[in-house]
Design a binder for these strands. Sequence first.
DNA 1: GTCAACATACCGACCGGTTGGTCTGATACG
DNA 2: CGTATCAGACCAACCGGTCGGTATGTTGAC
Lengths: 225, 225
Amino acid sequence: MVSTHPAPRTDARTKLLDAALGVIRAQGYAATSVDELCRAAGVTKGAFFHHFRSKEALAVAAAAHFGVMADGLYEAAWSALPGPAERVLGYVALRRAIIGGEFAAFTCLLGTMVQETYASSPAIRAACEAGIVDHAMRLAPDIAAALEAAGRPDIAPESVALFVQAVLQGGFILAKASGDPAAATDAVDHLTRYLGFLFTPDLTEDPMPHIATLPHEPRAEGETP
Amino acid sequence: MVSTHPAPRTDARTKLLDAALGVIRAQGYAATSVDELCRAAGVTKGAFFHHFRSKEALAVAAAAHFGVMADGLYEAAWSALPGPAERVLGYVALRRAIIGGEFAAFTCLLGTMVQETYASSPAIRAACEAGIVDHAMRLAPDIAAALEAAGRPDIAPESVALFVQAVLQGGFILAKASGDPAAATDAVDHLTRYLGFLFTPDLTEDPMPHIATLPHEPRAEGETP
DNA sequence: GTCAACATACCGACCGGTTGGTCTGATACG
DNA sequence: CGTATCAGACCAACCGGTCGGTATGTTGAC
């Protein structure tokens, strides 16, 4: 551990992680075998289990790998824009622009994996949660500023940040179901309009109390993560 | 097919379908084995392959089964309400009220399955798409009327209907990731506010052109399913 | 400077258990 | 008796994971 890099021949670990992003997003976690992963990475099974204790451990590492990649991709893009509302809308516009082509190229590994593993693997679930929430919370300060500027201190910025991710995830599901990436951009367009409403001042009144009477009583709720 | 019910001892087919709803929503499709399904349904493997040609065929049937169940559950609730906007908001409020407790009880089988199978099983993908789109489109007429009443003929009602489902699906993913159903209700609350904006007339102007400049050019898109 | 001692990275045959699916019957009803 | 509904032993393929072995360093005593 104290010494410098020992002897990575051509780093099988990174090749496995990169391969995992594509293969798992295309096939799902459970449907992807270790042998398949090794084949896609051009690596043997020995190398796999040298670097990862188990298939589950690779999934956790892949989640972190994906998080770093995603954060890096978007950070520069939106931090250059002038105001908070512009940065938030700019982020959403970037996400929209990326949608298209192969599903495995623009969908979210974390959303895909957590659906399959939330009940069976606490480690994977936690890694996916951390990746999604950390990424979402990068928008929170700008959302808070934009909400303040629009005179809407009643709305929790963290909740809006998570809603942005929820719409993206839901859009991906619709896109996969229909086989058409346009289903995801349609969802993002509604999200953009919603954020436009939120960030525009003097919108008469928040139409929230407009809600119809509930057929059932809403239950007590927990905290917001 | 033409004859009446021949001799269902205690209908293993229905028991398998019902069991599949819970088990697959909790574990995912690929991670659920046929033996496990049989155990959960209290049925033997012989019965399984008597009623279904394959595991894939059961998934397709389960998707249809889920669609029928979901449609029946909500139809009565929202058709009784007075106006179109109230019915739409009432539907969303009902969906919100149902969220809570076990994930397998309120999440969507179709959204879960399609994520795992969109690339590997065209039959399951198509069944999931049909279930989601058919269910979504039940709202379209009321959304169209509400949009018209609010003076918004520019917005496609079908697109709004699909957006409602997208938010629900995304909310479920966030809930599974955080382990807290409240993450889903938070998303639904934003959806409710958005619909409130859309259905309220005289909202100065649609803030849609407020969008930030795109870092990338958006690509040509296909049709909206 | 060299060589023994050791650590890391990787290879691929192999293992026990599980998988989706088949097959031969038994049972019950008309 | 015929036919639909099951029961469950059985199978080949595949699964995640193990293990003995090799290749390629790095280190430090002499």
